[in-house]
Lab assay of single mutants.
Amino acid sequence: MTYKLILNGKTLKGETTTEAVDAATAEKVFKQYANDNGVDGEWTYDDATKTFTVTE
């Protein structure tokens, strides 16, 4: 399945996607991606759209 991440960081905004077997796996990938890019904030997940959002 394809999962999407929306980044609403103070210095980085954008979107990315990943292929993962489940939401938990996608979340690990996205949290590492956000961490690597210096984005740390509040996370939400919408199962209907398979979209994670992180907002600083």
Rank of each mutant, 00 (worst) to 15 (best):
W43T: 01
K13I: 10
V29K: 08
M1F: 14
K50H: 14
V54E: 01
T18A: 09
D40C: 12
K13N: 07
L7W: 11
K50S: 06
T2G: 05
T53P: 00
Q32W: 05
E56S: 08
V39K: 02
N8V: 13
I6A: 03
G9L: 13
G41P: 01
T25C: 07
T16S: 08
A34V: 09
Q32N: 08
D47R: 07
A20D: 03
V54S: 02
Y45T: 01
E19M: 14
D22K: 03
V21S: 13
V54Y: 03
Y3A: 01
A20Y: 02
K4Q: 06
T17E: 09
T2Q: 10
G9Y: 06
E19T: 14
W43F: 04
T11P: 04
T16N: 06
M1T: 14
N37C: 11
Y33K: 03
T53H: 06
D36Q: 12
G41W: 06
D46A: 04
N8A: 08
W43M: 05
A34Y: 03
T11C: 14
A26I: 01
E42G: 05
V21N: 11
Q32C: 06
A20N: 03
I6Q: 05
T18N: 03
T18Y: 10
T55P: 01
G9V: 09
Q32I: 07
G14H: 10
L7N: 02
N37M: 15
T55S: 07
T53W: 09
N37E: 08
L12S: 08
A34Q: 02
I6N: 04
G38S: 07
T25A: 13
K28S: 09
T44A: 08
T2W: 13
E15K: 07
D47Y: 08
D46I: 05
A23K: 15
K28E: 11
N8G: 04
K50P: 00
A34W: 03
A23R: 12
A26Y: 00
T11N: 15
E19A: 08
V29P: 01
T11E: 11
T51V: 06
D40V: 14
K4G: 04
K28A: 13
N8R: 11
D22P: 01
T51Q: 04
L5M: 05
T17N: 06
V29L: 09
G41L: 03
T16I: 15
K31P: 00
Y3H: 04
I6C: 05
D36C: 08
D40N: 13
F30G: 00
K4H: 14
E56W: 12
I6L: 07
G9W: 05
K4R: 13
D47A: 14
N35F: 15
T55L: 06
L7R: 02
V54D: 00
D47C: 07
T44C: 08
D36G: 06
Y45I: 02
T25M: 15
Q32H: 08
E27N: 05
G41H: 02
K13W: 13
T11V: 12
K4D: 02
K28Y: 10
V54L: 09
N8M: 11
T25Q: 13
D36T: 08
A48D: 11
T16P: 03
V21Y: 12
V21C: 10
K10Y: 10
E56V: 09
G14D: 08
K13D: 05
T25H: 13
T53I: 09
N8W: 11
G14K: 12
D40S: 15
E42S: 10
I6M: 05
V39I: 15
E56K: 04
N37W: 14
K28F: 09
W43L: 03
Y3T: 01
Y3C: 02
K10H: 12
V54W: 03
A26G: 02
F52Y: 06
N35I: 15
L12D: 05
Y3I: 02
E15I: 13
T25I: 07
T18V: 15
K13T: 10
T16F: 15
T55V: 09
I6T: 04
E15D: 06
E15G: 07
D46L: 04
N8S: 07
